[in-house]
Structures are given as C-alpha cells and as structure tokens.
Amino acid sequence: MIIKFYSKPDCGLCIEGLHTLKIVQEDIDFTIEHYNIEEDDEAHEKYMLMIPVVEHNGDVVQYGQLDYATLYEALVD
C-alpha cells in the first residue's frame, strides 16, 4: 500500500504529522511517498491551506492535525 504525504519545509505541524504517520506505519505495512507542495504547483494550489495531508488511492484520509486513531482506522482495511 502506498500513502502520499503532502507537506512543506519548516512546517511544525507537518513534522508532527509525519511522526504520527510513522507510528501508524509500525502497525500497518505501507510505503510513504513524501511530496513537497512547494515543488508542485498543482499540489500547492490544492493543499496549501490543508497541510499536512495524507492521501490514499486519490482520497484524502486526513489533513491538518493528524491523529493515530483516524489514520489507523482509515488505513487498516
């Protein structure tokens, strides 16, 4: 399973969100693809006010303040 993680440099909430996602990764097997929205105009326009964003199969799983329970439930299926 591949999970897309959208963030940008110097984003404290993004650092915390990636840490939370990695904790979920300890319990569920998936690969994290990291995207810097500042390097992708389309992603920047789409997610600039939402980051960090976790996406799976083209659907946003969670954004902003990420939490273990929400991510785990969405990705465990």
Rank of each mutant, 00 (worst) to 15 (best):
M1C: 07
M1W: 10
I2Y: 08
I3W: 02
K4M: 11
F5W: 06
Y6H: 02
S7H: 02
S7N: 05
K8W: 03
C11L: 08
C14R: 00
I15E: 15
I15P: 06
E16A: 13
E16W: 13
E16T: 12
E16Q: 07
L18V: 05
L18Y: 14
L18D: 01
L18R: 01
L18S: 02
L18C: 03
K22C: 04
K22Y: 08
I23D: 04
V24H: 00
Q25T: 06
D27Q: 10
I28D: 04
D29R: 02
D29N: 10
F30S: 01
F30T: 10
I32S: 06
E33G: 08
E33C: 09
Y35W: 14
E38W: 13
E39N: 05
D40T: 07
D40V: 03
D41E: 12
D41M: 11
E42M: 05
A43S: 08
E45Q: 05
E45T: 09
K46Y: 03
K46S: 03
Y47M: 00
M48Y: 06
M48V: 05
L49C: 01
L49H: 03
M50T: 06
M50D: 13
I51P: 02
I51F: 01
P52R: 04
P52A: 02
V53T: 04
V53I: 07
V54D: 02
E55W: 00
H56Q: 05
H56A: 09
G58I: 09
D59T: 14
D59H: 15
D59M: 13
D59N: 15
Q62F: 13
Y63C: 15
Y63D: 05
G64Y: 08
Q65R: 15
Q65D: 12
Q65C: 11
L66I: 03
D67T: 12
A69H: 14
T70I: 12
L71S: 04
E73Y: 15
A74M: 07
A74V: 10
V76Y: 08
V76F: 04
D77C: 09
